[in-house]
Amino acid sequence: MTTAKRDGDTWILNGEKRWIGNAPWCDVSIIWARDVADNQVKGFIVENKTTPGFSVDKIENKVALKVVQNGHITLKDVRVPEENRLQGGNSFRDTARVLKMTRYAVAWMSTGCAMGAYEAALKYSQERLQFGKPIASFQLIQDLLARMIENITASQCLIVRQAQLHAEGKLSDAHAALSKAFCTSKCRETVAWAREILGGNGIVADYKVARFFNDCEALYTYEGTFQMQNLIVGKAITGLSAFL
């Protein structure tokens, strides 16, 4: 847990943050920390490269989203001026307003990931010949391709409606959670079928599908796991919180 303690006009931050995207090279980070005085979560703008006590270690040997540089941040008595505190972020509820929007975006991203894998698999199946015919002409391959475009189209309909709900001022945490859970799980199915269509070439990065296959695992988990999204939806539909 990362903590914040007020000390006059400054705050003292201590703790660790893992999996922070862009952290190994970016100039500024947003650090969320629990205020030891009121136990509420508060947000701070921290300058990475010039703040004493702030350090980042790059997380090595990932197998998904390998282009993204993720960092493990350590904060040791990091001093941040009060003017760098996000004045509208005074509780976890305020943090959740940010998470709602990032989950909204991940639903779109996972749909894009599925689209990329589907397009690569379809093109491959139209060109790859077996018994003198493109494998796209085989019933079992067409069954997989149809399931893939069904997943993609269902996800697209959901996320376009999600955008309409936002425009109408109705987008709730549960709406964004449901979209994130559904689209990432359907992406996971879709990229797996794409990999299957490519056979052995599906595990070779040069054929692109392996990249989508691996990357989807991160989309499925980050910004709140699949199960966490379902607990948000579960609370909304039952009226009962299962959070501990």
Partner: peptide, 9 residues
């Protein structure tokens, strides 16, 4: 969605 269609990273 467009960006992830080419590269989720």
């Amino acid at each position: 969605m467009e960006i992830a269609r080419i590269d989720p990273s």
